[in-house]
């Protein structure tokens, strides 16, 4: 009905298309290697004392955010995606940040102000 004939039926068109994918494969492997390096880095940095525990948490979360960004941008193809997907994610980000903000809200509601 709505499904077009398989792209592989047109050999020329398919060649172009497969070539594009092949170029990506290298990128995926490099991102995978980078993620492994960052994993080692975050483990190593957790044994470095950055003065306070808060500083260590900030460093670890920074590395984790970079890793998560790589996964989202490359593996999940968010680096180049349709606008509708971004719109869904903006909504999600708004609500999830709102939920984290609620912690702060509740925290200052606590009787013993610390």
């Amino acid at each position: 009905m709505n499904n077009p004939p398989d792209i592989s039926q047109d050999s020329k068109e398919y060649e172009e298309y497969a070539h594009g994918i092949r170029k990506h494969v290298r990128g995926y492997l490099m991102v995978g290697a980078l993620l492994l390096v960052f994993t080692g880095l975050t483990v190593a940095l957790s044994y470095v004392h950055f003065g306070t525990q808060k500083a260590n948490i900030a460093v670890a979360m920074l590395v984790a955010t970079v890793k998560a960004g790589l996964v989202a941008a490359i593996f999940m193809h968010l680096a180049a995606e349709r606008r509708l997907i971004y719109r869904i994610l903006i909504f999600t980000g708004f609500f999830v940040l709102g939920m984290f903000w609620l912690i702060l809200f509740a925290w200052y509601d606590y009787p013993i102000f610390r």
Partner: peptide
């Protein structure tokens, strides 16, 4: 991605 945060 979730595990990337769980682990640290």
């Amino acid at each position: 991605l979730v595990w990337i945060f769980v682990f640290p």
